[in-house]
Amino acid sequence: MLEFKRDQLDDVEVLTLKGNLDALTAPELRPTIDELVANRRTKVVFDLRDLTLIDSSGVGAIVSLFKRVRMLGGDVKIACLANQPKEIFRLLRLDRAFDLFDTVEEARGKFKK
C-alpha cells in the first residue's frame, strides 16, 4: 500500500510518501512524476518520514524524477530518510547523489539559498 500527497509550499513541491514504494505501487506514482516534469516543477522534496519500505522499482521512480528534474536545471531533495529505505539508499550510494535532510523545512530552506 502506498499513500502519497502533493503539496506546493511556495515554489517547492513536497511529495509525502506513506507505506511501501515498490514494484506494486511505484506505477501509481509515475503519473505524478510525469506531471511534475511536464509542468517544469524543478524544486522537489520527498518527505519519506512514513515510508516503510522501498525496493528497486521504487528507487527507479525516485531516480527517474531526479534525473529529469536535474535536466531542467532543478533538484530533488530527500527529507526524513530512515530505516529500510535508508539501508537501500546507503547500499545504492543514493545518499551521495541526493541531498539528505532531517526535516522537510531544512530541505525547502536549501532551495532558497
Binding site: D55, S56, V59, G60, V63, F66, K67, L94, A97
Partner: peptide, 8 residues
C-alpha cells in the same frame, strides 16, 4: 550512473 533498473 544512477541506474533506474537492474538493481534487484
Amino acid at each position: 550512473e544512477l541506474p533506474e533498473s537492474g538493481l534487484g
